[in-house]
C-alpha cells in the first residue's frame, strides 16, 4: 500500500462516515458540521488528484461560504434536535431501501461496464489542475460561460435580496 492509497482509503472512509453522520444526526448543527467534514475529505481527494485549485476553491466556497450560510440560517431559526421534524418510520425505511436499490443498480451497471476496466485516474501528478492551466482554459475557451456565470450571480444576488426583503 502506498501513501496515496492509504490516504485514498482513509479519506473515502472519512467522507462516507461523515456523510452518513449528516443523515443520522438529529441536530441540524451537527449535520452541518459533519457535512463540512465531508467537504474536507473531498478536498483531500482533490489534492490527491493534484487538483489543488479545486481543492482550495471547494474549501472556500463550500466550507467557507455556503456552509456558513447554512449554519447562519440554522442558528437564526434556532433549530435543534427537539424541533427537528421526523418522518414516519415506514417512510424512512422506504427511502433508505429505494436509495439502496438505486445504489445497487448503479454499482451493478458499473461492474458490467467493461470499457472501464484498466482505466485509472492519474494521482498526484499532472498539471492540469494547477491554477495557471485552469485559468488559461477558463479565460480562453470558457470565457463566455464564465461571463454568464457572473450574470447568474448577479441575478441570484438580486433574487436573494428581493426574497429576503419581503
Amino acid at each position: 500500500m502506498s501513501t496515496t492509497e492509504i490516504l485514498f482509503f482513509f479519506l473515502t472512509a472519512l467522507a462516507i462516515f461523515s456523510a452518513i453522520m449528516v443523515l443520522v444526526s438529529k441536530n441540524p448543527v451537527h449535520s452541518v458540521l459533519w457535512l463540512i467534514a465531508v467537504f474536507f475529505a473531498i478536498s483531500g481527494h482533490y489534492i490527491l488528484l493534484n487538483a489543488q485549485f479545486l481543492a482550495i476553491v471547494n474549501l472556500i466556497v463550500y466550507a467557507g461560504a455556503i456552509m456558513v450560510l447554512f449554519l447562519f440560517v440554522i442558528m437564526l431559526m434556532n433549530l435543534n434536535a427537539e424541533t427537528e421534524p421526523q418522518k414516519h418510520i415506514w417512510m424512512k425505511l422506504a427511502g433508505a431501501i429505494s436509495g439502496g436499490c438505486f445504489l445497487m443498480m448503479l454499482v451493478s451497471l458499473v461492474r458490467q461496464a467493461s470499457e472501464l476496466n484498466g482505466k485509472t485516474a492519474l494521482m498526484a501528478e499532472g498539471n492540469i489542475g494547477l491554477i495557471k492551466n485552469l485559468g488559461k482554459a477558463l479565460f480562453s475557451d470558457y470565457v463566455v460561460p464564465f461571463e454568464i456565470t457572473s450574470v447568474l450571480f448577479l441575478s441570484a444576488m438580486v433574487g436573494a435580496v428581493v426574497i429576503g426583503k419581503k
Binding site: A19, L23, P28, P85, Q86, A94, L106, T120
Partner: peptide, 29 residues
C-alpha cells in the same frame, strides 16, 4: 487508482444524498 473506485465512492455519496432527501423532512437538511 482505478477509476471504478472513484465511481463506487461517488455513487455511494450520491446515494447517501438521495437517501437523505428521502428520509429527512427538514428543508435545510
Amino acid at each position: 487508482m482505478p477509476i471504478q473506485y472513484y465511481i463506487y465512492f461517488c455513487l455511494t455519496l450520491f446515494s447517501i444524498g438521495i437517501i437523505g432527501v428521502l428520509t429527512r423532512r427538514n428543508a435545510i437538511i
